[in-house]
Amino acid sequence: MYRWDFAPVLAHADLLAAGLLNTLRVTGTALVVGVALGLALALLRLSRRRLASWPAGFVIEVFRTTPPLVQLFWFYFALPLVAGIEMTPFMAAATTFSIQSAAFFAEVFRAGIASVERGQWEAARAIGMTRPQALRRVVLPQAVKRMIPAFMERAIELMKTTTLVATISYADLLYAANEISQRSFRPLEAFTVAALAYFVVIFAASQAARRVERRLAASGDSTVR
């Protein structure tokens, strides 16, 4: 019977904490950039000009239909050579996950904007608003509220996806667990602690998201997926 011993792993708690912080750093960066870029992509995609909507659609589809790990490797190993720039693991991860979540957020924005009734556009334009004014003042505020659950779900998915950065040696929580496992020869405890740490953080986020979603549902507002 195996004797569990967490002490050697917990002795490296500082590594784990630093790893968790790095995980949150990548997630936060990708979230902020992803939402902004996602809105831009969604607006381009909804544009009537083919020259704008087509490339936006292409970016969205490519990043939604290729595996994130392939994207990460491409940005880390291939892009520096193509563009002749230096890429740190953090830059590669932030770039990949920002664009990737932008592609997903773009679809959320698009669904949200499309879910706002035509009458709202018409009423805004009937009082003389331009299209951008109608979008900013009337349509987006309503759309964003409906998108909140989908946003939160995506943010949680994003945090899970960031574990991939461990494969390019970025010192996130998973990478820290792997380090500790090799130093302490305690892989079972190291990976179990990592799994539990992820579970606690992500489960808490999911619960918070669920509560918000329930409150939105109770207020009778519709949501989009």
Binding site: E117, G119, Q120, E122, A123, A126, I127, G128, V138, Q142
Partner: peptide, 15 residues
């Protein structure tokens, strides 16, 4: 459009 106001059957107020 600013010079021609419109009132809709479904009101279309901004909720």
């Amino acid at each position: 459009r600013q010079r021609i106001g419109m009132v809709f059957q479904q009101f279309n107020l901004f909720p």
